[in-house]
Write a protein that binds this DNA or RNA. Structure first.
Length: 317
DNA sequence: TCAATCACG
DNA sequence: ACGTACGTGATTGAA
């Protein structure tokens, strides 16, 4: 509501600005130095394996999966995460668009699979198709709207939700969603098949057969049932991505141990792994990690991993 | 103890 | 007519 009103009132913009700064100060700047363990000189997060209903990890005490990156002041916090000493460098390895690749693979949507096989910018590619323009004529706005739909689809967005998230009217949003499904017809089939499966069985599954039970899937309350139906679509996507990165983590852990490497795996942030790399091992480690992450699980689309190094976590992105 | 807010993917 | 995009954790302030 305040974001909505901000355009008309300076005081509301200032309230939001203050809150943003207060958040950074209380949650990160003040709190994190208190979390340094005296014995090691490091912050030690705790990973929970049985909290998130989709199979993701969660992180607490402190949460290191929500370190700021979206604002300039927030990025200054991320800079504080550094290698153990000057003989080491941080390496961040991210799965590129893993959830969209998973939904493309599970739905066997050929057009989207082809786009990934060709190494296309999926949001631009989607924009070109749904707005029916050549790839090189896609505007920033069109790509932005296509990106919002691509993400929204994974969550089961409505025309109302999409219009709130973009500058499109409800009617335009509805048309865009319809065109999207005409562009990627197997996606709609897949989503409705997941909901049907959930109605019959009471659960849905990921690529490695992790289940999420959906007790509300046959509820007579349309609101409650609608939420369960979105869960039926989203959980296999988010959960399969979680399965894949967990397999990669196990294989990387074993490879690091077998190879007697000094490099250590430090953090997991859902589609990203962060390593403290012993500099002489860097080139070996980079190819090892890329190989293990991209081949952790064979889908009918390629997985792509982007990596970068830096003297701090911000620079490694 | 809970809801609201806001940090992340 | 209704409500309206998934998954988390930390902090704050009121109940």
């Amino acid at each position: 509501m305040l974001s909505y009103l901000a355009k008309d009132h300076e005081i509301i913009r200032n309230v939001l600005k203050y809150r943003g700064l207060a958040k950074l100060k209380s949650t990160y700047v003040d709190a994190l130095p208190e979390q340094v363990l005296e014995r090691t000189g490091h912050i030690h997060t705790e990973y929970m394996q049985t909290v998130a209903s989709t199979g993701r990890l969660s992180s607490n005490n402190p949460n290191l999966q929500n370190i700021p990156i979206r604002t300039e002041r927030g990025r200054q916090v991320r800079k504080a995460f550094v290698p153990r000493n000057e003989e080491y460098i941080l390496l961040a390895a991210d799965y590129s668009q893993i959830e969209l690749r998973v939904i493309a693979a599970m739905s066997e949507e050929e057009t989207m699979i082809e786009a990934f096989k060709n190494g296309e910018d999926i949001h631009a590619s989607t924009a070109a198709r749904v707005f029916n323009v050549p790839l090189e004529d896609v505007t920033r706005e069109q790509r932005g709207n296509a990106k919002t739909v691509n993400f929204g689809i994974i969550y089961g967005v409505s025309a109302f939700g999409l219009s709130n998230q973009t500058d499109l009217s409800r009617t335009e949003a509805k048309e865009l969603i319809e065109t999207y499904y005409e562009t990627y017809p197997k996606l709609r089939k897949y989503m409705s098949a997941q909901v049907d499966f959930a109605r019959d069985h009471g659960y849905v599954t990921t690529v490695s057969n992790r289940r999420r039970y959906l007790k509300d899937i046959n509820s007579r309350n349309t609101i409650v049932r609608g939420a369960a139906e979105r869960n039926a679509v989203n959980a296999p996507i988010q959960g399969s991505a979680a399965d894949i990165i967990k397999i990669a983590m196990i294989n990387i852990y074993n490879k690091l141990a077998e190879g007697g490497f000094k490099t250590k795996m430090l953090l997991q942030v859902h589609d990203e792994l962060v390593f403290d790399v012993y500099k002489p091992e860097l080139e070996t480690i980079k190819s090892l990690i890329k190989e293990e992450m991209e081949n952790a699980y064979a889908l009918n689309v390629p997985l792509d991993v982007e990596m970068d190094t830096g003297v701090n976590w911000l620079e490694a992105h």
